[in-house]
Computed example of a mutant assay.
Amino acid sequence: MSIATRIEAMWWRKDTPPLLLRWASSIYDLINRTNLARRAAGAMSPPLPMISVGNITVGGSGKTPFVIWLCGELIQHGYKPVVLCRGDGGSLKQPKHVLPNDAASEVGDEALLLALRCNAPVIAGRDRVAGARLAASLGNVIVLDDGFQYLQLTRSCDIVLIPAEGIGNGQLLLAGPLRETVDALSRADLVVRTGSEKSLPLSAQREWRWQAEAQAIQALRGAETPATGPCLALAGIARAERFFSAAAKAANIKETMRFADHHRYSATDVARILKPDLPVLTTEKDAVKLLPIWPKDKALSVLPLSGRGEEGLPETIIKTMLSHQKT
């Protein structure tokens, strides 16, 4: 287990972090507050109404499946959403309209997955102000992925996702999983708890519920039927243990293997993954990176996720967006 993985595991326990990490956390807090204030001071209005989906924790809150679900709900309500994301894991310098046949190494794994699953245009690029201008001709509402701290753009609805199980040890980076302290939730229009676990409220406002549910395993390569027998569960995502838990309910998991979030897979990685000689079950985000280099005769399956929100949540999001447009 790498040092980074050990530190991440510590974040989600109740143990007091080491003094060095707590000191680093205080420095991070000072720098982060300064940066957020600077971004907010220069905020620009996007050319379309914008719904931001973000979090206050590092990874594992379900942003990508939530954005996919939200786009579906907006389409059902007559809107034409355009997703705007950073393109993490990619090499883009300028905003790009992501196409399903683009390479994850260029546009990023999450951006490519969104392009494959959203039924909506996806723009990826670190300069999301420029990305918003590019999005203007492609739809009538922008869904900003991972946008809570991207204060350079004003928004019509600010949604913050928080895992149902909470915020770990409650410490800021690097001592804990928090990107901002809990009082930052006062900026949010809607707080949504993700997952099926019971949760203790973290804010004074209503906390909505939403969860991503595993669907039937799908075979992608090397097998006509999905890997439901003994297999290896593979994940290169934040908080991979949640995927391993879901995979164990869907298949006979003999081994697990994890990589860092947004890991760029190589031929050497594939050889290591295949060494146990087991069919491989992985996440949708990992699959878009593995397929281009995966042997045609080796079994690779994916465990898709589908979102389900509390009744009234889509309508509340839209109502909030419209109310902000009028002010």
Rank of each mutant, 00 (worst) to 15 (best):
2 S>C: 08
2 S>G: 07
3 I>Y: 02
4 A>C: 04
10 M>E: 11
15 D>M: 04
16 T>N: 06
26 S>Q: 13
27 I>V: 15
33 R>W: 03
36 L>H: 11
39 R>Y: 13
41 A>M: 08
59 G>N: 13
63 K>Q: 14
66 F>C: 09
67 V>F: 04
71 C>L: 02
72 G>D: 08
76 Q>F: 00
86 R>H: 04
88 D>V: 00
89 G>F: 04
89 G>K: 03
91 S>H: 09
94 Q>I: 11
98 V>T: 08
102 D>I: 00
102 D>T: 01
104 A>V: 01
104 A>F: 07
108 G>F: 03
112 L>R: 14
112 L>S: 07
112 L>K: 11
116 L>G: 00
118 C>D: 06
123 I>R: 00
124 A>C: 01
127 D>F: 04
129 V>G: 12
139 G>S: 03
141 V>K: 10
144 L>H: 02
146 D>S: 08
150 Y>N: 13
151 L>F: 10
151 L>W: 09
153 L>T: 03
155 R>N: 11
156 S>A: 15
157 C>W: 02
157 C>Q: 02
162 I>P: 02
170 G>K: 05
171 Q>F: 09
172 L>V: 08
180 E>W: 11
184 A>T: 14
194 T>C: 04
194 T>M: 10
202 L>Y: 10
203 S>Y: 15
206 R>D: 02
207 E>P: 01
210 W>F: 11
212 A>L: 00
218 Q>V: 15
218 Q>G: 01
219 A>I: 11
222 G>I: 02
222 G>N: 05
223 A>R: 13
233 A>F: 12
237 I>K: 06
240 A>I: 08
241 E>W: 09
244 F>P: 04
244 F>A: 14
247 A>C: 04
249 K>I: 08
256 T>F: 08
264 R>E: 09
270 V>G: 06
272 R>Q: 15
273 I>R: 06
275 K>H: 12
275 K>I: 03
276 P>H: 03
277 D>H: 15
278 L>S: 07
278 L>N: 09
285 K>V: 07
290 L>W: 09
296 K>T: 10
298 K>W: 00
302 V>A: 03
307 G>D: 03
312 G>Q: 14
315 E>R: 14
317 I>G: 01
317 I>Q: 08
323 S>F: 01
